[in-house]
Design a binder for these strands. Structure first.
Lengths: 195, 195
DNA sequence: ACCTGAACACCGTTCAAGT
DNA sequence: ACCTGAACACCGTTCAAGT
């Protein structure tokens, strides 16, 4: 089964981002990679932002799958959460340019569009992880929405600051996986017995 | 005392970002706002990234001052921290384009350069806030570095996700000030008596 | 030391035309 | 329905020249 030109354009854009960041995504470079003329992309996307948006949309679905898999593969909710956190950070580190795209440039978001839907799906899957964690007795007294938001923001903040390179790792946040684990630790005591 | 052309260029770039986002910062627009020819900026900055970097550098110093002021003005460290959090969020909301610039586009960072120094100064001031909080007995058993990183990442993540507009506020994280306060609450019980 | 004007290569976008 | 080639306006950057 053949890939459509549209899908191949998204593939090419994603590859260009991985190779040289979002700046490397010019319509000409994308088109050339697929083997069409430099303005053929306009038959599939409204403009350059729409191509970037399509890449981000796909990556949100990858994150959603990542959260779903963590919940499915670990019987223990806390383990599932820790795996999800580790995978999320690993994903950001291995695709810095594309990770960046997920939350940057609000101009490429059309309200109610596919990107917003994909972002909400990812958030929903993370919420399921947090819910399982709470059902198991951890931080059970906290509102799920707020707890999910706290985890999501911390995770994103850690990855985003690290990728931003405003500080050498050792002088800045240190190892961000340790910091993410710290948050999980802070949520543990609420499970009845406090150490 | 006259402002130098260089400072006026930074002022103009900051104003353009506030008005239309980083995309609106073209060398021609910046130069025109200051009243010089479109390539005069090259006498003061290496390239366009260097101008954006100068704006971000200044904003990091603003954040540093914000943290310092919070610590100075509140006798109670927890109150100081809460004020700092509220001010940080308010700052991001009132200058979304410039806030974005603080951690985005690593290509505009020169290692060891002024932007990195400014970012570290802001982090240091936040660390002082966290230290005062810990001296007062809150979360005293946790490593300061990790605790600061956790707070910084959460704060940045909350603001960045909200500004990214990937979700309607009510369907997404909810009110991010509430989430930030939740983190502070989580750090309280560690002060001896646990509720 | 600081600025200007012209020029170059590159880019997003549009349009008329082709199959 | 999908693509092409030419064209336009705009932009970052460079350079030779001016004071």
């Amino acid at each position: 089964m053949e890939k459509s030109t549209k899908v191949r354009l998204i593939d090419a854009a994603a590859a260009l981002i991985d190779a040289g960041g979002a700046r490397a995504v010019t319509l000409r470079a994308v088109a050339q990679a697929v083997g069409v003329s430099h303005n053929a992309p306009y038959k599939h996307f409204k403009d350059r932002d729409a191509i970037l948006s399509a890449v981000a949309e796909r990556d949100f679905h990858t994150l959603e799958a990542l959260f779903d898999r963590a919940l499915r593969d670990s019987p223990e909710p806390e383990t599932a959460l820790r795996h999800a956190i580790a995978d999320y950070i690993a994903y950001g580190r291995s695709h810095p340019g594309r990770y960046r795209l997920l939350f940057s440039d609000p101009e490429m978001v059309v309200p109610g569009g596919a990107l917003e839907v994909a972002a909400m799906c990812a958030l929903k899957s993370l919420t399921a992880l947090v819910e399982a964690f709470q059902v198991a007795g951890r931080a059970a007294h906290l509102p799920t929405r707020q707890l999910t938001a706290l985890l999501y923001a911390t995770l994103h903040g850690l990855v985003d600051i690290e990728l931003g390179q405003r500080a050498r790792p050792e002088k800045g946040l240190g190892d961000i996986t340790v910091v993410a684990d710290l948050l999980v630790e802070l949520l543990r005591p609420a499970q009845g017995l406090r150490q």
